[in-house]
Design a protein around this nucleic acid. Structure first.
Length: 271
DNA sequence: AGAAATACCCGTACGC
DNA sequence: TGCGTACGGGTATTTC
C-alpha cells in the first residue's frame, strides 16, 4: 500500500481510533523496522505518550505524540491498522503498539521494506522533501521554477521526492498521460502550455486517486479487506496492450528509472 | 564540481 | 520448480 492516495486514506482512517489513545507497549519481531533506536530504547521513549494528531507529509504518515513524532513509511506493501486483538492481525505484522483501550496498532509488511521512525522533527529522517502538490502553496510558478533547466526526463523528476513530494509510479504515469507529455521528454524542453497542463494533471491525478481510496492491484487490499477503486479509472497504468481511452491506440509499456512506465504513443508523442 | 544515469540492494508474494 | 515482476527509495558507482 504505497502511493499518496492510499497513504492519505490510511491517515484519515486512523484519526478516530488513535487520537487521544496512550501507548502502553511496543512489540516487534523485526528490529530493523524501527529507526533509529534499538527496540528497547524506542519503547522506553514512546510508552506513556498520547496520540495528539495524525497527518501526512509526502508518503510519510506522521503521528504527533506528546513529545515526539512517530512516522511510518509503508513503502511498497506496508499496511497500518487498528484491531482489537493481536490474533486478529495478519501473518505479516512485524511491529505493534498496545493502546490504553486494549486495542493495538499493527504495522504489517510482507516485503519488510517499510520503516517506523521516532524523532522530534520530520527532517531527522526525511530531509530534502520537495513541495506538496496538493497544497495551495504549490502553484504553477513553483513548478516552472523548479523545472528550470533540469535536464532529466520528466518521469524521473516526478518520481524524485526532492523535486515534488508524494508522486509515485502510478500517478506519475497518469499525470503525464492526462497532460499529453511523453515520459522521456526533457524537463527543460517542456513548453509553457505543457507545464501549465502538467501542473493541473499532477493535482487531478492525485485527487482522483484519493477520491477512489487508492488502488488495489495484484495482492493488495485495504486493511479492512475492501479494495480501493482507483485502478478501475487508470488511463495508462497497468493497461499495456489495451486501447487508449482517448484515441484507441494501444498503450505501450517501457522502463524509465527502473520503473514500469505506461503511455499512449499517439497522445504522448516523443519530443 | 555537480548533475544525471545506472546498478544494486532490500524480503516476499504472486502469476505465468 | 523457477523466473520475472511489483504502487519505494537509499546508497554507491559511473558517465556526462
Amino acid at each position: 500500500m504505497p502511493e499518496l492516495p492510499e497513504v492519505e486514506t490510511v491517515v484519515r482512517g486512523l484519526r478516530a481510533p488513535l487520537i487521544g489513545r496512550t501507548i502502553t507497549g511496543v512489540w516487534t519481531d523485526w528490529p530493523k523496522v524501527i529507526r533509529p533506536y534499538p527496540p528497547e530504547e524506542f519503547a522506553a521513549r514512546v510508552v506513556g505518550q498520547t496520540f495528539r494528531a495524525i497527518n501526512r507529509r509526502a508518503k510519510y504518515i506522521l503521528c504527533q505524540l506528546d513529545h515526539d513524532i512517530l512516522a511510518i513509511h509503508l513503502k511498497m506493501t506496508g499496511r497500518l491498522y487498528v484491531s482489537e486483538a493481536p490474533e486478529a492481525a495478519d501473518r505479516w505484522v512485524h511491529f505493534r503498539l498496545a493502546l490504553d483501550n486494549g486495542q493495538y496498532l499493527h504495522f504489517s509488511d510482507a516485503r519488510r521494506f517499510g520503516r517506523v521512525f521516532l524523532g522530534m522533527r520530520l527532517e531527522e529522517f526525511a530531509p530534502n522533501l520537495g513541495p506538496e502538490p496538493l497544497e495551495d502553496s504549490f502553484t504553477v510558478e513553483v513548478l516552472r521554477e523548479r523545472l528550470g533547466k533540469r535536464q532529466r526526463n520528466i518521469k524521473a523528476l516526478l518520481l524524485d521526492q526532492s523535486f515534488i513530494a508524494g508522486v509515485g509510479n502510478i500517478y506519475a504515469d497518469e499525470a503525464l498521460f492526462r497532460a499529453g507529455i511523453h515520459p522521456l521528454r526533457r524537463a527543460s524542453n517542456l513548453t509553457e502550455a505543457e507545464i501549465q497542463r502538467l501542473y493541473e494533471t499532477i493535482r487531478a491525478a492525485l485527487a482522483a486517486g484519493i477520491d477512489y481510496e487508492g488502488a488495489s492491484i495484484n495482492w493488495y487490499r485495504k486493511p479492512d479487506g475492501t479494495a480501493g477503486k482507483s485502478q478501475e479509472h487508470f488511463f495508462v497504468y497497468h493497461r499495456e496492450g489495451q486501447p487508449c481511452a482517448r484515441c484507441g491506440q494501444l498503450i505501450v509499456k517501457i522502463r524509465v528509472s527502473q520503473r514500469g512506465t505506461h503511455y499512449c504513443p499517439n497522445c504522448q508523442p516523443e519530443a
